[in-house]
């Protein structure tokens, strides 16, 4: 029903097995960070991989989703599920507004416009009272899911985050393999032709953008709940750049690439954190190596080697 090919089904089951086993071996909070980043990267990949539009402003949706989830959680004491959904709605609504402007141009202009619009969102978050400016929203309670599941336990929270990730992942896969997704790929390959076949390409691009940003908002909201904090870092343009790198490293337009990219990037940030600015240098160097030497990314190269679409 999700359109997985045989090798993809095997890879998916392997991923599920890893998601189930890992929390018993590794630190669950770290894994939750990985899963949020993975969902973020998969949502981002929907735009770059299947519509061919590079957004350099996805941090705006990630950060705003986080802010809204954290704020509603802390002030209104809503249910965790509501907070995450509100995060997604915020991402989607913001995506609708910014996407409406950005899809007027394509290629590098699209990248620059999304970057500039996200910068505007950043300045808004810096000034707006509800975000807490430089301090961010701190000490957000994790609260309860559906009113009876206590999320303060790390393991319980982990299963919720895992469920959100798998749900998001399958949604994206379903979108890509729907007739709608086929039209998107058609637009990516040859937009004038799609237009001449009677498709309103701008509408398709905008819907794809909104879906991508809504899922990004969900990822942001989930992350805010996990860590109990929403800060300016998540709206900053460096986060936008990081997610581009994550997806590029894993493999643009591959199914499992963004998730693997998130594993690599988050581990790197985690274990290299003590080296300060060297993290940025390493990231930049990886960026350049990816672009120069292996543009297919890790999963893309493996898939190319095995002659499979992963």
């Amino acid at each position: 029903m999700f359109g997985f090919s045989r090798p993809q089904t095997i890879a998916f089951l392997a991923m599920l097995a890893l998601i189930i086993v890992c929390p018993y071996v590794l630190y669950p909070v770290f894994l939750m960070r990985v899963l949020c980043a993975a969902l973020f990267a998969c949502a981002f990949n929907l735009m770059i991989g299947y519509v061919g539009l590079l957004s350099f402003g996805h941090a705006a949706f990630f950060g705003m989703g986080g802010y809204v989830a954290a704020w509603t959680m802390k002030t209104w004491h809503v249910d965790a599920s509501i907070a995450i959904i509100l995060g997604g709605l915020t991402g989607g609504l913001l995506g609708l507004c910014l996407g409406f402007l950005a899809i007027r141009r394509s290629g590098i202009y699209f990248a620059m416009i999304t970057l500039a619009l996200a910068q505007m969102v950043y300045f808004f978050c810096l000034e707006a009272p509800f975000t807490g400016g430089e301090d961010g929203i701190q000490q957000v309670p994790r609260g309860w899911l559906f009113g009876f599941i206590d999320l303060s336990n790390d393991m319980t929270m982990y299963w919720v985050v895992a469920a959100v990730f798998v749900g998001g992942f399958l949604t994206i896969h379903r979108i890509i393999h729907s007739p709608f997704g086929q039209v998107l790929k058609g637009i990516r390959e040859n937009e004038p032709r799609a237009t001449s076949l009677g498709y309103r390409t701008d509408d398709y691009k905008l819907i794809a953008f909104v879906l991508s940003t809504a899922l990004t908002g969900i990822a942001g909201g989930t992350k805010a709940l996990v860590f109990g904090i929403a800060t300016l870092t998540d709206v900053h343009s460096s986060t936008s750049g990081e997610i581009v790198l994550t997806t590029l490293l894993g493999g643009l337009g591959t199914v499992f690439g963004p998730a693997l990219g998130a594993v690599v990037m988050t581990s790197m940030e985690n274990y290299l954190a003590q080296f300060g600015a060297w993290v940025t240098v390493t990231q930049g160097a990886i960026f350049m190596i990816c672009v120069l030497a292996f543009r297919r990314g890790i999963i893309g190269e493996i898939g190319h080697f095995l002659k499979l679409r992963l």
Binding site: L54, A111, G241, V279, Q283, G284, A285, M288, L292
Partner: peptide, 16 residues
Amino acid sequence: LYGLLLTFGLSLVIEG
């Protein structure tokens, strides 16, 4: 877009 990504990586390295 690859030129954009490359120079972005370059700026990260230089600034870092």
